[in-house]
Design a protein around this nucleic acid. Structure first.
Lengths: 121, 121
DNA sequence: CAGGATCCACACGGATACTG
DNA sequence: CAGTATCCGTGTGGATCCTG
């Protein structure tokens, strides 16, 4: 169903990439780990108000399986687990940045387009 | 529930962007419309094998409402509807491209990371 | 051809309770 | 603290039938 990484060099397609980041939490979690930031489970819980423990743990596990985040467990009495991006995960930054940039262009391009192209008549 | 565009300049956040592109079909559809490509409903149906009519129509309508694709109806007996990206939709290209680039880096960075950092022990 | 309407299954996701 | 387990509602998405 969900395999670790994937066979050999698979050259991910569009659909594969989508799968890796699907769900409404993945990207939000990643945003809180960018720039080398290291967060504990409880940190992420605070940083992402709407998320439930189930979703947080689940999404983190998937991101880990997919090689995007790495998990570090400190074997001590009050458990401590740190999450950080893998090198590949960090490499997602430009893409996310491009998405935000895109969002910023919305008003300008949308209004422009609306005035230019009428409702096809 | 789902409004046309949005009030005034809203400066979309991460979560908003995610909403716009959520679902496993949105990006796939967009990929088939990049580079100014114009596709008919039936074209998209053929280009995206797994999708159902319902999903295709639904996603297209959402993308249209969100100002990412535009729909052009030819009022003729055998109906003809064309879909293309709006200017803003086209602007998504760099972001998608960055995602694909990211995917391509996977093998190199993943293997590297795996050898460097052991499983925290 | 381009969908709308409907029914249905399941996965996603939330809340709560419990554990090491 | 960092989860897991469970129950459950909702949304997502597929299949089918029907229409202008």
């Amino acid at each position: 169903m969900r395999r670790l990484y994937t066979p050999a060099s698979a050259a991910l397609g569009v659909e594969e990439v989508i799968r890796l980041l699907e769900g409404k939490w993945k990207l939000i979690i990643l945003f809180h780990l960018f720039d080398g930031k290291v967060q504990r489970y409880s940190d992420l819980e605070k940083l992402i108000p709407g998320i439930s423990q189930k979703m947080l743990a689940q999404q983190l596990r998937q991101l880990e399986e997919d090689g995007i985040v790495s998990r570090k467990v400190y074997p001590q009495v009050p458990p401590k687990v740190e999450y950080r991006l893998t090198e590949w995960g960090q490499a997602l930054c430009p893409a996310l940045d491009a998405m935000l940039k895109w969002a910023e262009q919305r008003d300008a391009l949308l209004l422009k387009g609306v005035t230019e192209e009428g409702p096809a008549d």
